[in-house]
């Protein structure tokens, strides 16, 4: 976060980069805060590294090291009736840098709350969350949330919303606009740049919210059911786009969803939560090859087994977990 601010002035000309090449990935790992959009490749915006003056010492950052550590976090809310309501109980979870982790669980089990704690928007009743070894004390541009409620700025157009983050980071207007337009096109909203949020459908708002967060290149994406309001087709497209972005930039993603398919398709790790009080039931490593292609994966028996197993586990917990 500090590093990015230091990098402000470097308005160097972006140079294209082969996003799939090994060197490209390495570069992305070295400069997780990097990117600037330029050009297009296979419908996707190619992002080039900002040749910033600062480069983190490589030694300090083991590529497979934990980026987020959640340590025995509990969250107790006081309800309006002055009762204690346990939303999260004793959650411990480590997320490795560059990992795609999904949180799966029934409605009301505390998924959003957990995301807010990592985002620094809510401080836990007990326990602590850390980002890169530093205790999380508040929000910062290193962790970009996409909220379930979209939370778009209603007084800004689609373009204004998406440009807001980059402008705040000190990126020049013309450049921020070009980047933002590319992102808007990516989420399939070309032609809607000058619409106000009230003029968009729910699914369109959700896509703007996604583009707005991607626009300021957070290291960690905190996504709260970002595809919940989308039709199957758009959903699939955005899942693929998200995977492409993630495979290219190796952002860390914490992804809340209700959909077992979606969780298995996207993730390295699926965290299953159970309700009342919110706990982690099980963490499942998804050992499927990448890059993942949807049409191949749907036929893959390993994928099918993951989905069936996880669904069965939820069914069991439904039977066992009726509140006593």
């Amino acid at each position: 976060m500090k590093a990015r601010q230091n990098g402000r002035g470097s308005n160097d000309a972006p140079h294209g980069r082969e996003s799939d090449s090994l060197s490209g990935r390495l570069l992305a790992k070295l400069m997780p805060l990097n990117p600037r959009a330029s050009g297009t490749e296979g419908g996707m915006t190619v992002v080039s590294a900002r040749s910033s003056e600062w480069v983190r010492p490589v030694t300090q950052q083991d590529p497979a090291s934990a980026i987020i550590e959640i340590d025995r976090v509990s969250q107790v809310f006081k309800t309006s009736a002055r009762k204690n309501h346990v939303a999260l109980s004793d959650i411990s979870l480590t997320i490795e840098e560059g990992a795609f982790v999904s949180i799966l669980g029934p409605s009301g089990c505390g998924k959003s709350t957990l995301l807010y704690i990592v985002g620094g928007f809510v401080s836990p009743t007990s326990g602590a969350a850390k980002m890169k070894g530093q205790a999380i004390t508040g929000p910062g541009p290193d962790r970009g949330p996409v909220f379930q409620e979209f939370a778009l700025f209603p007084w800004k157009t689609v373009l204004g919303n998406v440009m807001y983050g980059p402008r705040q980071q000190g990126i020049r207007g013309t450049e921020a606009e070009a980047q933002s337009r590319a992102l808007i096109e990516m989420v399939g909203l070309k032609g809607y740049e000058n619409f106000y949020p009230k003029e968009l459908s729910g699914g369109m708002k959700q896509r703007v919210a996604l583009a707005r967060t991607l626009a300021y290149h957070p290291e960690v994406l905190l996504m709260d059911e970002p595809f919940g309001a989308l039709d199957a087709h758009t959903r699939t497209r955005l899942q693929n786009d998200l995977l492409n972005i993630w495979e290219r930039d190796r952002k860390t993603v914490l992804f809340v969803t209700h959909s077992v398919d979606e969780a298995v398709f996207l993730s390295d790790k699926v965290v299953m939560m159970s309700k009342s009080p919110g706990r982690i039931r099980q963490v499942i490593d998804i050992d499927l090859p990448r890059p993942r292609r949807r049409n191949e994966l749907l036929l893959d028996p390993r994928y099918q087994k993951y989905v069936v197993d996880i669904e069965r586990m939820f069914d069991e917990s439904d039977e066992a977990g009726a509140p006593a």
Binding site: G119, F121, G138, P141, P145, E149, A151, Q168, P218
Partner: peptide
């Protein structure tokens, strides 16, 4: 003012 809007702003570094 919707809280999440302020959170979004805070996350952008405002």
């Amino acid at each position: 003012v919707e809280e999440k809007m302020l959170w979004s702003g805070a996350a952008m570094g405002l």
